[in-house]
Design a protein around this nucleic acid. Sequence first.
DNA 1: TTTCGTGCAAAAGTTTTGCAAGCCC
DNA 2: GGGCTTGCAAAACTTTTGCACGAAA
Lengths: 133, 133
Amino acid sequence: MSAAPSPAPPRETRQREVISRLLQSAEGPLGVPELHARALNELPRLGVATVYRTLKLLQEQGAAHIVTLDGENLYEASGRGHHHHFSCRQCGRVYTLNTCPVALPAGTVYPGGFVVEAHEVTLYGLCPACAPR
Amino acid sequence: MSAAPSPAPPRETRQREVISRLLQSAEGPLGVPELHARALNELPRLGVATVYRTLKLLQEQGAAHIVTLDGENLYEASGRGHHHHFSCRQCGRVYTLNTCPVALPAGTVYPGGFVVEAHEVTLYGLCPACAPR
DNA sequence: TTTCGTGCAAAAGTTTTGCAAGCCC
DNA sequence: GGGCTTGCAAAACTTTTGCACGAAA
């Protein structure tokens, strides 16, 4: 028998660099079509498949994660601190909220014996631009 | 000229009755394939399209709503009180929580001018069955 | 050079839509 | 009877996969 095959580290390619950078500099979570469209400006021949493959890779590395809103899968770079999302029912835009409405430190035991490790909150309503002033 | 066309009320059909009832009596949120499968027992010729159309109708009526977990769209009957979900990272089961960790009455204005109408919370961690005692 | 990654195209999965026939009112 | 609904099938999307060529190490 042989030692466990040590997995070669992922290669650094232009595609991965661009996708990763776009994700990091985005204002909020992005859907695949949107991300792909933005990347096409720099990589005219980029295929959607590569976007999906790269996103999967980034998720495995913990560098990105998925957020699902209204049945649509959006992707977001990790490491920008604890935050939540606000979805506007009027304009459909998704905002990032930096305040957190719940007090549930990891390790909290919720009634019934549920050990909470993480939580996700999404608020729905009207964003500042759509709310009647 | 004529008066504003008063929208005819939706008809009561066997399909709608069955789908609605199955959703109400379900233990938790159901996916379309699962819901369709259960309905086939009573309506052998029911098509998936009707399930989707009925779910859309129920949502418009506020009688059902969508819950997305792990990228899968699940549907749940409304009117069973305010609740949230707990997803166990070990066994993958989704539980319904009847306590709510946030205090955000509809109409609350969140910092930044976001008018909150509703909120959704999902907790992740270990359920009572999977947590080391 | 060797292997991994990419582009392209086809496949698989999900949700929507068009249309003729059927059912509700 | 008239119009909304349904079933079926095709279309539109979304995400994954296979493969030969191109690029990183």
